[in-house]
Design a protein around this nucleic acid. Sequence first.
DNA 1: TTGTAAGCGTTATCAC
DNA 2: GTGATAACGCTTACAA
Lengths: 338, 338
Amino acid sequence: MKKVTIKDVAKEAGVSPSTVSRVISDSPNISNSTKDKVRSIMKEMGYYPNAIARSLVKQKTRSIGLVMSRPTDRALANPFFSGVIQGIAAVAQEKNYSILLTAADNYEDEYEEALKQLKVGRVDGLVLLASRINDDLIKQLLENNYPFVLIGRSEEFRSIPRVDNDNYMAAYTLVEKLIRSGYKDFSVLAGHKDYVFTGDRLKGVIDALKAHNLNINPDRIEFTDFSFTSAEESAYKILSNFNPDVLIAFDDLLGMAAVQTAEKLGFSIPEQIGIVGFNDHTLISYFKPSLTTVKIPIVEMGQKAISMLIKMLEDTSYKGEEKIISTEIIERESLKFK
Amino acid sequence: MKKVTIKDVAKEAGVSPSTVSRVISDSPNISNSTKDKVRSIMKEMGYYPNAIARSLVKQKTRSIGLVMSRPTDRALANPFFSGVIQGIAAVAQEKNYSILLTAADNYEDEYEEALKQLKVGRVDGLVLLASRINDDLIKQLLENNYPFVLIGRSEEFRSIPRVDNDNYMAAYTLVEKLIRSGYKDFSVLAGHKDYVFTGDRLKGVIDALKAHNLNINPDRIEFTDFSFTSAEESAYKILSNFNPDVLIAFDDLLGMAAVQTAEKLGFSIPEQIGIVGFNDHTLISYFKPSLTTVKIPIVEMGQKAISMLIKMLEDTSYKGEEKIISTEIIERESLKFK
DNA sequence: TTGTAAGCGTTATCAC
DNA sequence: GTGATAACGCTTACAA
């Protein structure tokens, strides 16, 4: 069960290891006859070039770290992350890269872990999936000139390689469309305050309202985490106190919680209150009434992010860019536009 | 921005590379004074031992491949996989292993990819997350003596290292409890026929019924895939034709679809029909009526699987074992036991 | 307690 | 077209 190496193949084929190496990389200056011979022997002996040795001399691993930037358990509970992984994995496989999952229980460890994977040379670059962004990590990455692409946005660092949707505009556009549909009493079930997208979406909502001389009472904005009970509580506060005719939830999960709370309180949906979510998680198709939502093309964002990173790795003159993916409002049952 | 190597550190510290290496591994026969000196220099120079070079000489990568054994998109749509990843990632991080995600669009590629990661020496072992099991992969792994642990069960290969819950017993026990509660007209919304657990759970259901001289008409068993529409259709067939008083869904997602279909057909839940799922996905807490379910401790299964694999890797005399994790019935609103 | 040297499995440079 | 040889960054006998 010993591993067969390039030397074994070389000996068997009666050529030098360099020749075998050239055959592996399909070098043009090797005769077809030797190529054929060597290849058949490789197959015969069950030879596979050792990726580690290769990485060592090439100083490239062809693997990319995926950093989730929040406690793993919570990260993975949200279908959002499945989408990103899906997009990333697909492209990685196609381009012959491996993806290395970096996990930790808290932000500091995560940050250390991710950086370490780069420092010890286990990965060539990083895809950061950032909701609550660790700007220290980004700072370190920039200082060390490590290749990375951010999915999301950093408060502190502008014009870094990243892929995002325009949360501000998505929210702004949504509110305009709602106003045009006759909605007046707005309320917001926002996600966690620390998430960058929470602030962006909120600003979009507020600015759009202002532009139409509408205001929103801060009491009608509730921040909540992603647990059902917390979301339910927050939704209850808003709905029982203010009787709004529209509720914007910054995530479908929150939207689902709001729908149930509204129903419990006797609201008819969408007649008395319209509820709209964000993301368009696949799982919400299982939920009734089906959620009207702002679709974030998360799989596509994952694909774009890793494609950009790979391009940066393979063309050092390319420094990445900022890619903003557009969103789309999907009308279902929980809120009707007129 | 050049990488600092062990030689640089050695030179700076006025010792040999081997000494530095020994300091890294905290060898007992290095004087504390040199240890201190070398360590401070390592820190000062920002030295991190290169993982690739290390892997090459040690012939160990400290990374483990995770194979999902089904098209990535479908795999990730199901919260089941998030749970496994969560369990695996936590233990990996703790034991200082990396986890390498292996993805592909279809079974054959997946199988090739996974095997390749081992052959090229990029991973030390594999965790197979098997629903529809690729017995060929297992065969290859066994033949090549590659370390792996299966989460699930193989039809063909008995007594291989694996972690599973006893799907047969879980279903059997559930049915007994249902019978004791007075349920009589059973129906089953099963998952995809090809999945091993589908067959196991079904057998458990049928055997338990038989043991109580009850039978189930094959027409009352519907196989379906995990899309909402397909599940809904199957549920509709059962519910509209047979009017059962209990429906067992082999996944919470299917259970949710069944609940909605039942409601649409005017069934009152749980009075007229009890509906029970499997898995206890975290997301079902967002769903009303909350689903009574058979909880599969999937995070724990992930943890156990990778722990076993790591043990196999670090103690070659340990060949793995079969670990069966017990399940638990969780009563919520969609079905009441009496 | 430390240093020397060989070797892990490749690729790359330079000959021929 | 092909072969020696050095190098990638580390660990590990073997010496000292």
